[in-house]
Amino acid sequence: MIIIMAGGRSSRMGREKPVLKVGGVPMLLRIYYEAEKAGETVVALSRNTPKTRELCLREGISFVETPGKGYVKDVMYLLREFGPFVSVSSDLPFVTVSDIAAVKKAFDGETSITGVLPLRLVPKDLKPLLYKGYAIVGLNAVGAEGERFFELSNPLLAINVNTPEELRLANRIARLVG
């Protein structure tokens, strides 16, 4: 199971991120179209994302409602409801089916995986979340036992749209890469 996490408050952006367009397409749809190629996909949303719910209903996309009380609580809720799953953040507009399939293949169903990029692959002008010499990306696998890093190779995964400035950057990149 692949779950697109789309229920956050989007406090830094000031509006629902999943419905914001990158390259003329809502980020959620860009991600969903890639994820569904890798397997059964559902969108996790909450009371924080009414426009995202409307988009899912309009497009016929399956969704589940989470408590909406923070990422960790929502992930724990989903783990109880669905068991182990691959998690994709709804603000990764350049995630590909290959990225998702790589995490899915590496996942043993028990040990959680945190998707990371080696810093050498991160474009210099980006300021990603760093931990232990890696850029953390929003593509993971959620299990019940421990955690390990999994290196990905798509440099565009470093583009995580959290602010209006990052949305402008994503749109510039979308014009270049399609």
Results as ranks from 00 to 15, higher is better:
T66Q: 03
P67E: 00
P67D: 00
P67I: 00
P67G: 00
P67H: 01
P67C: 00
P67Y: 01
G68H: 07
G68P: 08
G68D: 06
G68V: 06
G68T: 02
K69C: 05
K69T: 04
G70P: 08
G70N: 12
Y71L: 10
Y71D: 06
Y71A: 11
V72Y: 12
V72C: 13
V72N: 12
V72E: 14
V72P: 07
V72W: 11
V72D: 11
V72F: 10
K73N: 04
K73H: 05
K73Q: 03
D74P: 01
D74G: 01
D74V: 00
D74W: 00
V75G: 04
V75S: 10
M76R: 12
M76L: 13
L78T: 12
L79E: 04
L79M: 07
L79R: 10
E81D: 14
E81M: 14
E81R: 14
F82L: 15
F82H: 15
F82C: 14
G83N: 14
G83L: 13
G83W: 15
P84S: 03
P84H: 07
F85K: 13
F85P: 10
F85D: 11
V86W: 01
V86R: 02
S87R: 10
S87Q: 11
S87E: 07
S87V: 02
S87W: 04
V88Y: 07
V88P: 02
V88D: 03
V88R: 06
V88A: 03
V88T: 04
V88F: 06
V88I: 11
S89N: 09
S89R: 09
S89L: 07
S89H: 09
S89G: 09
S89F: 07
S89W: 08
S89A: 08
D91L: 01
D91E: 01
D91A: 01
L92A: 05
L92V: 05
L92Y: 07
P93F: 01
P93V: 01
P93R: 02
F94W: 05
F94E: 02
V95W: 10
V95M: 08
V95E: 07
